[in-house]
Amino acid sequence: MAVVLGENQYGKAEVRLVHIDRSTRAHRLRDISVSSALRGDFTSAHLDGDNSHVLPTDTQKNTVYAFARDGGIGEIEEFGLRLARHFVASNVWTTSARMEIVEHGWQRISTTGGTADHAFSRAAGEYRTAVVTVDRDRAHVIAGIGGLLLLKSTGSEFRGFARDKYTTLVETDDRVLATELTVRWRYAATDIEYGSLFASIREILLRTFADVHS
């Protein structure tokens, strides 16, 4: 009986990296989690126990640390592109690499003498995301936000909804609206200003939530 191996991938999940840049008086702290997934010619590993085409997941983890040490992180989309292109270019049997990065924000603490140069507090539940996929000479980037908690104390209504015999909810034209937002978008190019675009998109999301009657 012939055995056919379908599409498959393997990688290293949730490599935690806290990177501190001390090159200036005011330190900069980055807190990210990186998950890698490699696709390609790994049939012999699954069917014959031949690992000659398998780059260890421990090596993938070490690569994340090395790239952060040698070139910093920059925008997480750019960091993901650097990593994915490296894995595809340096392993001929790897045809595609996918990097998923989650970044948690930290802010410098305000003190009586001003903003602290090297003391930080972590932001609440909100986090920034990037998913980068490189297939040989093609690449695409999906960015996003998760865990963004929003609330408006008025400017929302709920009425005209479907009813059945179990419906007891009363219609209202004035209510509190609270939600946790998860949103993703795909960039049309990879040579763009990720940081400023991210900030602009986040601002539009918040302004729309605040201004638009729901």
Score class of each variant (00 low, 15 high):
Tyr127Asn: 13
Ser110Arg: 14
Phe158Trp: 04
Asp135Phe: 01
Ala123Lys: 08
Arg122Leu: 09
Thr182Gly: 06
Phe120Ala: 02
Tyr127Pro: 03
Ile109Leu: 15
Ser96Ala: 12
Gly146Ile: 02
Gly155Asp: 05
Lys165Ile: 12
Glu157Gly: 08
Thr133Val: 13
Val170Lys: 02
Tyr166Met: 01
Val170Ala: 06
Gly155Pro: 03
Gly113Pro: 06
Lys152Ile: 03
Thr182Met: 08
Tyr166Lys: 02
Thr154Leu: 05
Glu171Ile: 06
Thr182Arg: 09
Asp173Gln: 14
Asn91Thr: 12
Trp106Val: 02
Ser156Glu: 01
Arg175Met: 13
Ile101Pro: 00
Trp93Phe: 08
Ser110Glu: 15
Val102Thr: 15
Thr111Asp: 10
Thr111Lys: 07
Thr129Gln: 08
Arg184Ser: 13
Ile145Trp: 04
Ala139Gly: 04
Ser110Ile: 14
Glu126Ala: 12
Asn91His: 12
Gly125Val: 07
Glu157Asn: 11
Asp137Trp: 05
Thr172His: 01
Gly160Val: 00
Arg159Asp: 07
Tyr127Ser: 14
Ser153Thr: 15
Arg184Asp: 07
Ile142Met: 07
Thr167Met: 03
Thr179Trp: 02
Gln107Thr: 14
Ala97Leu: 01
Arg128Tyr: 11
Thr133Tyr: 02
Gly147Gln: 09
Gly160Met: 02
Glu100Asn: 14
Ala97Gln: 01
Val183Tyr: 13
His104Pro: 07
Leu151Asn: 06
Phe120Tyr: 15
Gly155Cys: 04
Ile101Lys: 01
Arg159Ala: 12
Arg184His: 11
Thr112Ala: 15
Arg163Pro: 00
Asp117Phe: 14
Met99Glu: 08
Thr111Ala: 12
Thr112His: 13
Asp173His: 10
Arg136His: 13
Trp185Gln: 09
Asp164Met: 01
Val183Ile: 15
Ser110Val: 15
Ile145Leu: 07
Thr111Met: 14
Gly105His: 10
Phe158Thr: 01
Trp93Leu: 11
Trp93Cys: 09
Val141Phe: 01
Val134Met: 03
Thr154Trp: 08
Val176Cys: 09
Ala162Phe: 04
Tyr127Met: 05
Thr94Trp: 00
Ala162Pro: 04
Val92Pro: 15
Arg108Pro: 12
Val132Pro: 03
Thr111Val: 12
Arg98Gly: 05
Asp173Ile: 09
Ile145Ala: 01
Arg175Val: 08
Leu177Thr: 02
Val134Asp: 06
Ala97Thr: 02
Ala162Ser: 12
Lys152Val: 02
Thr95His: 05
Ala162Arg: 08
Ala119Gln: 13
Ser96Lys: 11
Leu181Met: 07
Glu180Lys: 05
Ala116Gly: 04
Leu148Pro: 02
Asp117Cys: 08
Tyr127Phe: 15
Arg175Gln: 06
Leu149Tyr: 10
Ala143Glu: 04
Thr115Leu: 14
Asp173Trp: 08
Ala119Cys: 12
Lys165Trp: 10
Tyr127Val: 07
Gly144Met: 01
Thr179His: 01
Gly114Ser: 14
Thr167Ile: 07
Ser121Glu: 13
Arg163Tyr: 00
